[in-house]
Structures are given as C-alpha cells and as structure tokens.
C-alpha cells in the first residue's frame, strides 16, 4: 500500500524573510532549509537528534532542526548560520577561526548556533559550564578544547563589556 502524504502549507520566517512552503507533511525543518529553501549551511549529521550538527534557533532558542517538522514552524522565526554575519563575522564566528575551533567544519554551523544560544542562556560562566552545555554538539575531529576557548573568549568579552 503506498501512502500519499498530505501537503501542508507553512509560512516560516527564515533569517527575517518569509518562506512559504507547500510541502510533504514529513518534511523536517532541516530538509526544508537544505533541500527546499537552499540554505545548506545547516548540516545533517544523523537525522536522529543525536549529534547537534543541525542546530538552528527557533524563536531564539536552540533546536535540532532534524527533529522539528517544517509544519511546526508556521509563523515562527528561524535563524540559521547564514544570518549570523553582517558586514563582519559574528564574534563567535571570528573566535572560532582565531581559536581554530573546527577542522573538517561539518559540525561548525551547529556548534556556533548552539554557542549563540548558550551565551543568551547565560550558560557560559565557566569552562566546565561551557563543556557541559555544549555537549549536545558532537565534533568527531576533536576540536572541543578550542571550541571552549572560542566561546570563553566571546563570553569573557561580554562580561568585560558589562
């Protein structure tokens, strides 16, 4: 028996632009971003909610876009890695480069989006706290100490400014 999934109409605010989707109900936010909207900066590392590579911000909070259906995002704000940099790189992007916080770069979009949320959550108060609350983002190249250093740099700068 073949199954014809219903089409679902959704209007998602992606990086400040409204994106109208008329799509397979099974479509995840991750596949919508990558395959339909064409924003491939968000990565698929497992499609099972276990690696963090697909982390994006939904209404400012970090979510796994592979476990979020596009249909759940109607009228909501999604922020991806592509929207972080303006004329200059976001401080976290710059810190990731300076601290060499990636190697293959595949997990990096997810790491940075997670770190953006981490700072907003106030979870970057110490190295141990950063390690703990960044542990949902796997990095198989093993850049963890440099990821901690990059986030510490930006968090320290924020504390300093305040």
């Amino acid at each position: 028996m073949s199954f014809e999934p219903p089409l679902v109409r959704t209007a998602v605010q992606v990086n400040g632009f409204e994106r109208k989707l008329e799509a397979d109900a099974r479509l995840t936010l991750l596949d919508a971003l990558r395959d339909v909207i064409g924003l491939t900066g968000t990565k698929k590392g497992c499609d099972q909610g276990a690696c963090g590579a697909c982390t994006v911000l939904l209404e400012g909070r970090r979510v796994l876009s592979c476990l979020t259906l596009a249909a759940q995002c109607d009228g909501r704000q999604v922020t991806t890695i592509e929207a972080l940099a303006g004329d200059d790189l976001h401080p976290l992007q710059a810190a990731f480069i300076r601290r060499d916080a990636f190697q293959c770069g595949f997990c990096t979009s997810g790491q940075i989006m997670s770190a953006v949320a981490l700072l907003d959550e106030g979870r970057a108060g110490s190295d141990d706290e950063i390690r703990e609350f960044m542990s949902g983002n796997l990095c198989r190249c093993g850049a963890y100490p440099n990821i901690v250093a990059a986030i510490r740099d930006v968090a320290g700068g924020r504390n300093h400014d305040a």
Binding site: R34, L39, T40, G41, T42, K43, K44, T80, I81, E82, L84, A85, L89, Q93, A94, F96, I97, R98, D100, F102, G105, F106, T108, S109, I112
Partner: peptide, 18 residues
C-alpha cells in the same frame, strides 16, 4: 588561521551532501 575558515564558519563551504 585556516584559509578555509570563513567559508566553514558561515556555512558557505559546500560539502558533498550540499
């Protein structure tokens, strides 16, 4: 710094799946 750094931190680096 890595010369491919800017591409990797902005999501612009094109991997096979992209």
């Amino acid at each position: 710094d890595r010369v491919d750094g800017p591409a990797k931190v902005t999501g612009a680096a094109t991997y096979t799946m992209d």
